[in-house]
Design a protein around this nucleic acid. Sequence first.
DNA 1: ATGAAAGCGCTAACAG
DNA 2: CTGTTAGCGCTTTCAT
Lengths: 340, 340
Amino acid sequence: MFKMSRTTIKDVARKAGVSTQTVSRVINGRPDVAVATRERVTSVVQELGFRPSALARGLIKGRSFTLGVVTAGSKDVGPLLTLGGIISEAQEHGYALLLEELPGFTATEVEPIIDILVSHQVDGILWTIPEIGDNHAWLDTWLDEIPVPIVFLNMHPRQGITSLSIDNYTGAMLATRHLLEMDPRTIAHISGPLTWWDARERMRGWQDAMKEAGREPDFSVEGNWSSSSGEEAASQLLDSHPEIDAIFAANDQMALSVLLVAHRRKICIPEELAVVGYDGLAESAYYFPPLTTVHQDLYTLGSHGVRMLVGLIEAERQEWTAPLQATVVSPKLIPRSTTW
Amino acid sequence: MFKMSRTTIKDVARKAGVSTQTVSRVINGRPDVAVATRERVTSVVQELGFRPSALARGLIKGRSFTLGVVTAGSKDVGPLLTLGGIISEAQEHGYALLLEELPGFTATEVEPIIDILVSHQVDGILWTIPEIGDNHAWLDTWLDEIPVPIVFLNMHPRQGITSLSIDNYTGAMLATRHLLEMDPRTIAHISGPLTWWDARERMRGWQDAMKEAGREPDFSVEGNWSSSSGEEAASQLLDSHPEIDAIFAANDQMALSVLLVAHRRKICIPEELAVVGYDGLAESAYYFPPLTTVHQDLYTLGSHGVRMLVGLIEAERQEWTAPLQATVVSPKLIPRSTTW
DNA sequence: ATGAAAGCGCTAACAG
DNA sequence: CTGTTAGCGCTTTCAT
């Protein structure tokens, strides 16, 4: 089969015996076309299988109805769930998505990524990279270079930048307070990697909730989100401090390992060891025993982010400066059988 | 801050005192430019922060260095993992991704999606929608309309279409044979929704492995991939047929519920009930007990798919018809503690 | 080594 | 209601 050059508006115009202008009017649904003409053109469009070039359109209009999305860690479930929400919502609003990955989590690679997105005339950018170390430092010096609206997801809120984040601090407080209600001897924490803003916030929530109850937040071990790091952390905690009878893990995957370690040691859950996780993965309801956890709706985070971004874009079209806001949403506790 | 119109090649040309042509040569790294000129232009490019418009380029070249990706079910982990692999690999090859979601799994919406992708001049398309019901029927009548190479992921192999699929049938055979080695009284199956090609293949693998061993594949219940459906299925099986002492679940999430149900009924695993899952989720190694499962590397599936697609695109550039092939990769069994 | 002219596919602005 | 002219930002001839 030969792949001849794609059919253009000219081909349609010629075959329908009208000017390209008229064809343009028809395919854009303008009212000022005679019914007869419109029908003729429409049928030729069908016949030839004509599809207007989004590129040519974008070139003229200066916009492309495309949103740029920057992700990282495309191996982890969290970011991917967020992406899921982004995809659906963008579709809903009629935007296509141009996806770029920031390899690793480093800051260095930011410029080429932005370049690609901007050169494709994206109408806005959604930044979904977790804040790790100083990988958001470029923001302070560099943000002005970006000629389109940009929304950051799960970032430490900053002045004058639009972002949408889940309140890790409050989530961790919820978890810890819930454990405190059981009046345990002591509550340990298995944190995420402390270079992560999210991990630090959760840790801080645990600490403050402990102090608030007159307890010392003495025992914590740093994990790396993975179940295997959770296993190590749990073993270590239980070995060195047998008095620990409650653990707050910074995500469900690490909490899962805590359960496993406890089973191996014949420790009863929740009687001898209470556990709370974080994330609210669907499967956590079927762990053994079903895991008490703090649910954060990553999917909704993504779709909400798109809505904010689209808002900014619309605002700009209408020449009014949109209010830059840092929105924070609260996670919620789901009590199940690893506490009571 | 005013957002003036973006700087174009003309601005650079004027400021550098050369023609747009020369600028074009410089930014494309052509050799035929005087060193002095090149340097002058380069510095102006920097100074003005000029980024060539990918749209204008694509318009001329007839290609965009963009791959179209069509996904579905952006709430499930599987497809998202595949997407992760796609993202990374595309990046590697210098392609951007244009992402579209097929809402639901229906066939009706295919045309508009393709239209969007084609109108954006994508160089190729990656179809990652699971084959459900007859949602791939459009292929037979419609494929010719698509003017770019297209690769299908996890589809029932067809003549003359390039696809890359994981061998569900073999995977299920592996799982079942492994269970048979324990010489159980009988092995039940919890399947995925049988409208899914993948689910039917896994079921068939279980059936054939049973027959091969002179057993009757009598007991199976249809789930819907979710843990909650798995819970129901497991309860039902165990209630109605207490003699069941081995279960092959069509995915890990349903297998997880089998474990939970067994624990509740004080059934020992694996002594009284052996369990094998499917997918090889990272967490399955930390279920209680660690789950024997069939691992399919969805991430690699995605990256591999991109490589095939890029191959097709390159081939087309060089005017030779690439061989259309249906590639199948094998999953592998990971024995853990729910069997032995 | 550099520039001028033409055009990629489409639409905006103006006629008529 | 419809056609003409111009031009989006860039690259491709073809001169010079």
